[in-house]
Design a protein around this nucleic acid. Structure first.
Lengths: 260, 260
DNA sequence: GAGTGGTCTAGACCACTGC
DNA sequence: CAGTGGTCTAGACCACTCG
């Protein structure tokens, strides 16, 4: 492995300022190790839910101290790529974990209580990427895409209508039956059936009038205000792998956000 | 200073497992130091924008190693209470910093470009807390509150109407003229004029039809969909010190959110 | 008890800022 | 140059989990 770069910092230490070609942008050891770990995660070396090697083991692999590996893992844990469990190990984050669900669907009931959610796939078809979809998913216009429409129920009532655009190259095999048969969240489905893990997302929210079809699906009046949530989801290498637009009926639920 | 508790951990080490009454909930040294720093921030020992003592100095004060102080500061920096600047020092975060502005107003234009924002205070009056305001601000019903109504302009156009509820005990002296005269954001105003620093906030978003007055102020049609943003802001000790409801016109702007 | 992550220390040196 | 935060090390011991 081309690991020399990683040891620049240490070399600079031991060489006591003797002329070392300074890296154009300084990158500490722990960040290089972090990048290496992300690459190994991306490559599928460890599956979601599995444990990665112990800190001591990794320190030995990278030939650095445990503290340095620790700092790399700290950042990955802060970014929700890894999950630490004292006494057990460090695990690859997974959407099978129900806690991940609320990280990506920030809806809570206006008046207390927790409720069951249920996804009801309605349609699934192929198409060619238009200008907008191509831009969002970093594809070329005309590239194959897969589109899914579904309704999300909370406690038996429809609350969200989603239209989901996926790169055909990755998700070309998705069918309505597969979606209907799968138990678990959509991202859990992507993770287990297509080895694509959503890691991060950007959302853009607006208030818009409900179109006729959505209004029917949500059991509300056409034209009444709904929350439009446009989302781009990214996988490990900051690669956009999903673009979706959801209409949220916010009569009984609201979008919750915490500002730090 | 009653600092013995902080040293429990160290004592346990040096006493080599000799019977030490175990704390009911284990709290590592660095967290106790963190709590102490928060308290000192809250007390106003250091003003926003000022630098706090160096890590070495704090380590000496607390009689711990630099690494332990460092970990405490790390967490406070992650929570945006402190800001580290290599080579210069560690500073108390302030809303005077324009970067803080976008942390609390997540509006971006739909089509590129950055624009000037301007706050236009419209009204400011006293009232007694109703049931809802009392609950949100942790007051008693009937306690004095101060209410402010204002419009926020982006690039000269009205985009947000806010109605802001403040505890009268703290903000009883606010007047419309003070608000009009102040250059800078509202939170900067609170910080500099009332020594209250907003540290964290919770927002609840819904899509609602615009009422007549708001519609007029926003130059939109009555009943057209607007984004309702309800916010509770907290100061250092998780104390709620502001409750506001904003109506955002999302025709040209959208609420941006990143999901980690 | 063995193994894992979590805390703490002491000390060295690097990177950045400003005098 | 001194002072500050940032990185790295080596080693000790604590807290937690599980067999």
């Amino acid at each position: 492995m081309a690991w020399t770069t990683v040891k620049n910092y240490v070399q600079m230490q031991s060489m006591k300022r003797i002329a070392v070609p300074p890296a154009p942008t300084f990158s500490p050891l722990y960040r290089q190790i972090k990048a290496s770990l992300v690459q190994r995660l991306e490559s599928g070396e460890w599956d979601p839910g599995e444990s990665i090697p112990s800190e001591a083991e990794l320190a030995s692999q990278f030939q650095v101290s445990q503290g340095t590996v620790r700092k790399a893992i700290d950042e990955l844990a802060a970014e929700n790529l890894l999950i630490r469990r004292q006494g057990k190990g460090t695990f690859v984050a997974t959407h099978d974990d129900p806690r991940a669900f609320f990280r990506f669907l920030r809806l809570i009931p206006l008046s207390g209580g927790i409720q069951q959610t249920k996804s009801i796939p309605l349609e699934c078809w192929r198409a060619k990427a238009g200008v907008e979809a191509a831009r969002m998913l970093e594809l070329k216009v005309g590239d194959p895409i897969t589109i899914v429409r579904r309704v999300l129920q909370f406690a038996g009532k429809p609350v969200v209508v989603d239209e989901i655009y996926l790169p055909g190259e990755i998700f070309g095999e998705v069918t309505l039956d597969m979606l209907r048969d799968y138990q678990g969240s959509l991202y859990s489905f992507f993770e287990n059936r297509f080895s694509i893990r959503m890691v991060r997302a950007e959302e853009r929210l607006r208030a818009v009038p409900a179109d006729r079809m959505s209004a029917e699906l949500l059991h509300i009046e056409e034209g009444s205000p709904v929350l439009s949530v446009e989302r781009i989801s990214f996988s490990y290498a900051n690669k956009p792998v999903e673009w979706r637009r959801g209409l949220y009926s916010t009569h009984d639920y609201c979008y919750f956000n915490e500002l730090g």
